[in-house]
Design a protein around this nucleic acid. Structure first.
Lengths: 341, 341
DNA sequence: TTCCTTTACGCAAACGTTTGCGGAAACGTT
DNA sequence: AACGTTTCCGCAAACGTTTGCGTAAAGGAA
């Protein structure tokens, strides 16, 4: 096992008959170095594939070009598309990414924050664990290291937050259902405490109000862990009502798919009797029959945007921290589950 | 923006009235340090939350406790379950993970290998890009840094490889189909050059031979990029044969789901007329109707096992490199698509 | 008691890069 | 020609940790 020995700054300097500090400054485009000297140095460095020793430079300058990322669940599809965007943008920008998974555990999340900082990452990208109650630990570090949040965020943390237009997306989905003639639209959402769920619910309510449709508590269903099987259960509840809904909006695709499966079981005609709309455009949405209408979340773009702003903050630190929200637009994909002929 | 200043070894040494080197040795369990001194040092370090400066120690010792991971596609579900296992085991073992995505691009894969090495990771975990033709670049580094491959591997690379029992899994799937009375079993696979596909095809052939079933080239279908839509197309081909198969084994769940969709379209009774079995146990396999029988691949365990062996090699380097294959067992999950009443 | 070995520490160099400061040379102004 | 400013380099220290080697003291054997 012989690790390849990379060429050092000292060797470059010797070959060029310059000092080490001059070579370093030339490679870092320092204004004190003349253009001819700079070009000569950079050309020889390239010829020898010179790569700085990260540990030496990080040790001296406290800059690593590593970004830390904390997500609740790496195998969740939407998260993995965000990560894809993160990896791509970071790489294009000369950064590497260390990923940690909090497993939706708040305590673990705090530990990971500490570990990331101690590890010397230049900045942190973070999606909150689903049931984050206390943001104290995050508030402690937000003025110590560049932080950008994405997807699951909190408005109480003074940092840049990259999210989708949750409220408006839900509004558009409900409006679409209204436009295909639906007048009694149910919603399957999460219980209080979920930022995403609350925003989507607000859009639902606003759409009903603006179209002068009544708000009926009996068709507003909440659940803790919104999943396919919960969606199936909620659909059963809605089907047993004296006055059934004519559309069901579920705030995740999983739940919406569970709804479709329940409706299929009871031979409910989708979308004529009951239309269904989900949220996320997961890979599952075209596999279920009928194919699911859903809000497409541009994970890849969220990831890229979050990295862009984080690097901006690393390279141009600001004195005062404010909450800045960047909203990425979604779009509704209409498929068979809500397609009106 | 004030980065928290961590306590240094020098400060600990001063407080303990010991030398820096003694404190370092005590924290690293060096045999030259007495037990009383060691305990005193470790207790004070814990009290002050001492964390070594990674850059100083990495700079000196060339050991970072970072593992590099290269995967073809981070948002592929199976890959993300492997990554989950990798992250978990690495964290439990005091390592961090840097992930790069090759996007199934061979050239990019080679670049990433180089970058990982230059970056100073202690070892590399790697799944090959789908169409890796040349392993020269990998051979160049395999004796320079610990390497463990997983999932998509090559038997020509002398390193530890963690894979599932591809051949046996396919054999079991075909045998199951034979046991439910199927006698004309088609396969939808990839064209030559895919390690996984070839092994699964071998299992298919072996099962047919051992049960004295004829091998008919007309129901052995190959395609380049095996996907849901390809599966659908292949099913259409098989349905148009004068002599239809009575079962279809697709080497990925995506293709199998495409098959089911095609069979559903033509009102083929599944599994009585034609049974379907896939491979992977993706999240989609219970969403399609009828639910798909499939080979369950334990991604999480593959990831954990790969990390285990990589750390073993990092911490106990071996002089000679040999190809060692670790096979993780799969199991067939029988669902409605091949369930015989 | 003497000699040899073991134990348990401390000194100082090394790791590769960055950066403050100083000095020499060149240039421009008076 | 003298003086002040700018340009463009080099010296050397610093960053925090690890590790080779040396030394003093303690312990054990002859």
């Amino acid at each position: 096992m012989q690790k390849k020995r990379n060429i050092t700054l000292k060797e470059l300097a010797k070959a060029l008959e310059l000092s080490i500090s001059t070579v370093s400054r030339a490679l870092n485009n320092h204004p004190d170095i003349s253009e001819p000297t700079k070009e000569k140095v950079q050309k020889l460095a390239e010829k020898h594939n010179y790569v700085p020793n990260l540990f030496a430079s990080g040790f001296r300058s406290h800059r690593t070009h590593i970004l830390g990322v904390i997500v609740p669940n790496i195998s969740h599809y939407f998260t993995s598309t965000i990560l894809k965007g993160i990896l791509e943008k970071a790489e294009n920008s000369g950064y590497r990414v260390i990923i940690s998974e909090s497993k939706n555990d708040e305590k673990k999340q705090s530990e990971m924050l500490q570990t990331m900082m101690q590890f010397g990452v230049d900045g942190i990208l973070m999606a909150l664990s689903r049931r984050t109650k206390s943001i104290d630990d995050i508030l402690k570090i937000v003025n110590r290291i560049p932080l950008v949040m994405f997807d699951k965020v909190s408005g109480k943390i003074p940092c840049t937050q990259v999210v989708i237009n949750e409220e408006e997306a839900a509004y558009n989905a409900i409006e679409h259902l209204i436009n295909i003639g639906k007048r009694r639209i149910a919603i399957i959402k999460e219980t209080e405490g979920s930022f995403n769920s609350e925003k989507r619910f607000e859009g639902y309510l606003r759409a009903l109000r603006e179209h002068d449709l009544p708000i009926d508590e009996k068709i507003i269903l909440s659940t803790e862990d919104i999943s396919l099987s919960k969606g199936r259960m909620m659909a059963n509840v809605l089907l047993s009502l004296k006055k059934r809904p004519d559309a069901i909006f579920a705030i995740t695709d999983s739940a919406a798919i569970g709804v479709i499966k329940a409706l299929n079981k009871f031979k409910v005609n989708i979308p004529d009797e009951i239309a269904v709309v989900g949220f996320s455009n997961s890979v599952n949405s075209t596999i279920i029959s009928p194919s699911l209408s859903t809000v497409d979340q541009p994970g890849h773009q969220i990831g890229r945007t979050a990295v862009k702003y984080l690097i901006e903050e690393i390279e141009n630190p600001k004195e005062d921290l404010v909450t800045r929200t960047i909203e990425i637009k979604t779009n509704l994909i209409v498929r068979d589950s809500s397609f009106k002929v």
